[in-house]
């Protein structure tokens, strides 16, 4: 099935922006829990973690970053029941919340609330296996934090550099960037 992600998917962030524009933001105070996730498998919080993670892996700049390019949408589509990566659904369902909670002991904040430089520092430690044997490792079981990070890098690259027909690479942004 080929769908244009820009037609079928409204990211949570742009939803909030639109909603905020309409209501002056007041609406958001009591309502977020009732806003349905526009994703197949990700909850709104998982999608938000994934968006930020995708932006750390492929940062925005002159050309769109992972979030704007639709990487979260790509992964959500691929790990859903009719996706190519459906075997990885549990990996994401386990590891995204774990990734969010793991820095709390050390930084006093969840990943979502870290500032950018701390996020990068934290992810570099994650990549090098620092948390594989830590007390937070139980959050990730049966997966290893560094293993998840390698997988998510690969999937972000697929979403950013692969064909838009799979839900990422919005408007062929990566093709334009490398001038393929």
């Amino acid at each position: 099935m080929k769908t244009d992600p820009s037609l079928t998917h409204l990211s949570r962030r742009s939803f909030i922006k639109i909603t905020a524009a309409w209501t002056g933001g007041l609406w958001l105070v009591g309502v977020p829990a009732e806003i349905p996730s526009s994703y197949r498998l990700f909850t709104r919080e998982e999608a938000e973690i994934m968006d930020i993670l995708a932006n750390c892996i492929i940062p925005p700049g002159e050309f769109a970053g992972g979030e704007e390019a639709g990487v979260t949408n790509f992964i959500d589509q691929q790990i859903s029941i009719d996706g190519y990566l459906k075997e990885d659904a549990r990996l994401y369902k386990t590891c995204l919340p774990a990734l969010n909670r793991t820095p709390f002991n050390e930084y006093g904040k969840h990943f979502l609330n870290l500032d950018e430089s701390n996020r990068i520092e934290y992810l570099k430690k994650l990549e090098s296996g620092v948390y594989n044997e830590s007390s937070e490792a139980a959050l990730w079981e049966p997966y290893a934090p560094s293993q998840f990070f390698s997988t998510v890098i690969d999937h972000c690259m697929m979403g950013f550099y692969g064909s838009p027909e799979h839900g990422g690479n919005k408007n062929y942004v990566s093709y334009r960037m490398i001038r393929f």
Partner: peptide, 16 residues
């Protein structure tokens, strides 16, 4: 670099 700003810059600068 496998990811991050440095990775993206490498892609942009060196693909061609």
């Amino acid at each position: 670099a496998r990811w991050g700003k440095e990775h993206k810059e490498y892609q942009k600068k060196n693909y061609r």
